[in-house]
Simulated scan of single mutants.
Amino acid sequence: MEIRFGKRSDIGQVTDIFNYYIEHTNARFEEMPLSYEDRQAWFSQFAGDSKYQIFVAVENGILLGFACSQPYRATPAFEDTVEATIYLAPEARGKGLGSILYSMLFEALGNQGVHRVLSGVALPNDASLALHRCFDFREVGVFQEYAKKNGQYISSMWLEKALDIEFSST
């Protein structure tokens, strides 16, 4: 298995993984599949020398999962904060791949001036919560029934992780 920075040629398989979660779970709130074109624009935010990174796991040409960091909100107040996302292909779950991908992502972010990493987990999702706890994410709170998909309300646990950078007001 190869763990590497994502490439544009991965967009199709990344889109397939997103769409699996849209169609079969409440982990994504969209009700319609994402398009390849939409994911191309989304992918353009990632760069190896930035706060916004994407790592993929590939085996025999098949993308098994990815972890990425994205802007939390588009305002200067949040420039040292990122939102982390991780998705695994159904056949790759429960094999430790999420830990490998998150390890790579957080190691890379350690040199990019990131102060906080946030993540929202649609409930219930014990496996994702356990993964985040293993990486020292702290539970911040639950947004109760704040989203609606297919006629059902969804709650999400929000978590945060501190990274080691100092803020100077000078």
Rank of each mutant, 00 (worst) to 15 (best):
R8L: 12
A147W: 01
L64I: 04
A77W: 10
G98V: 01
G6Y: 11
A57C: 02
A130Y: 02
G94S: 14
D164S: 15
R39T: 08
A47L: 07
T81I: 15
V14K: 05
L129P: 01
E160Q: 14
Y146N: 11
L88S: 02
K7G: 11
V117C: 09
S169I: 11
T15D: 00
L97M: 14
I54M: 15
L105S: 07
N111V: 12
G151S: 10
K51I: 04
E31K: 06
E79M: 15
L118G: 02
T75M: 13
L88I: 07
Y20T: 03
N150Y: 15
F5I: 12
T85H: 08
F46Y: 15
D164G: 09
G110W: 02
V56T: 04
R8A: 14
F43S: 03
H115P: 01
T75F: 10
E107I: 07
P33Y: 01
S44H: 04
N150A: 12
E107A: 13
E91A: 14
T15K: 00
N26F: 10
Q53N: 05
E23Y: 03
V14Y: 00
I22T: 06
N60S: 15
A162C: 06
S156Y: 01
T85A: 14
W158V: 02
Q70M: 08
L88T: 02
Q144W: 05
M1W: 09
S103C: 13
Y87K: 03
A41F: 14
G110K: 02
D126V: 07
E160C: 10
S156C: 09
V82W: 03
A92T: 05
W158H: 04
Y87D: 05
G61M: 13
S155K: 01
S69P: 03
S128H: 11
G94K: 11
D126R: 06
P76T: 01
V82K: 01
A127N: 10
F66V: 08
A67M: 13
S103D: 15
F106R: 13
I165Y: 04
Y72A: 03
V114C: 05
F43L: 06
E166V: 14
R39W: 08
M32N: 14
N60G: 07
R116Y: 12
L123E: 08
Q53K: 12
S69E: 03
G96C: 05
Y72V: 07
L97R: 06
F106E: 14
E83I: 07
P124K: 03
F167G: 08
H115G: 03
W158Y: 13
I100C: 07
C134D: 08
R138C: 07
A27E: 04
I54D: 00
S169V: 11
E83S: 09
R4D: 00
S156G: 05
K161A: 04
L101V: 08
S119D: 13
R28D: 02
F106P: 12
F18Y: 12
I22V: 07
L97P: 00
N150W: 14
N111K: 13
S168I: 09
E37R: 09
S69K: 04
L118C: 05
F66C: 11
L159A: 06
L63F: 10
L163N: 07
L109T: 02
A92F: 10
G65T: 09
A57H: 02
S155P: 02
T170Y: 11
V114I: 08
S168Y: 12
K161D: 10
L105Q: 12
R116D: 05
L129K: 00
W158K: 04
Q112W: 02
S50R: 10
